[in-house]
Design a protein around this nucleic acid. Structure first.
Lengths: 139, 139
DNA sequence: CCGCGATTGTTGGTATACAAGCGGATTTTG
DNA sequence: CAAAATCCGCTTGTATACCAACAATCGCGG
């Protein structure tokens, strides 16, 4: 039992992912101060899907129903998302990006791409590919 | 300008990290329901450092001063951490794991290690090494 | 057509997380 | 030694994030 039980926090994948995520979040906030990563993800998906229900958007962006509600509320409050009741299913609301939402997304697209680049900047091109493909298998 | 502006959310490192983290958090919560990953990290560091101030523990676990306060409060409420005022520096409080805290950490250590293993289970041994070493460079 | 399970959106509660700002203590510096 | 800078812990406010519970609605089987 000499070395089997040493638990080194700094080598745990969860701790490393948390810290890597912190660094990425800081890069994002510096580059796009107006929108959080979550809000941007929701807006991006909405621009891609055009018309979806709230929960469906949540599933498409890996967010809980309770979480997506708050995100959509904040996007709505800023006029980036429009909400209309679904005509057939009375439980649903249909979300769509407003013209302002679409314009904002377009204007931020390039910056968003550069955020990914900056996050991965410590790695070489090949390492980036490797990292992303391994990461994709851990979702 | 045909393909330069397609922003694919699912390929962004932030989105992938968020989802990989979600999966890891779910594994953690299933395996150690009593403690959050953050609380466990703080407890682990505390067992390693024995006696630290609150903010110092926060820095050692990559937590904001406001964040570590809440974490320590909850650990204290469960009797896992003991607090004494620092004798020299009157601003500081000195944290130390209680006997119960040390015992809990010891009893969870193996499970914590298996959480890392389960999180990385989709990868082969070599891929795990690669992933961790790349991830370590992104913190 | 009736009932029952599933889905939709909502709410409340808990737990990170960070920014900003506070008063107080300590250390550095001029 | 006094002023400035720094550090300490705290609080407030905002934003994820998830769970659990809820009413309203929908769809399907009988």
């Amino acid at each position: 039992m000499d070395g089997t039980d040493d638990y080194v926090l700094d080598e745990q994948v969860g701790f490393l992912m948390r810290r890597a995520n912190q660094r990425h979040l800081a890069i994002f906030a510096r580059s796009i101060p107006d929108l959080t990563p979550t809000q941007f993800a929701a807006l991006a998906r909405l621009c891609e899907l055009e018309r979806v229900s709230q929960n469906a958007l949540g599933r498409a962006t890996a967010m809980d129903a309770a979480t997506i509600k708050g995100v959509v509320d904040r996007l709505r409050a800023r006029g980036l998302v429009e909400v209309t009741p679904d005509e057939v299913d009375q439980r649903r609301v249909v979300l769509a990006p407003s013209e302002a939402g679409r314009a904002l997304f377009r204007s931020l697209q390039a910056r968003a791409a550069s955020i990914t680049a900056e996050t991965l900047a410590p790695l070489s091109d090949g390492e980036r590919e490797t990292f992303l493909s391994l990461l994709r298998r851990l979702v």
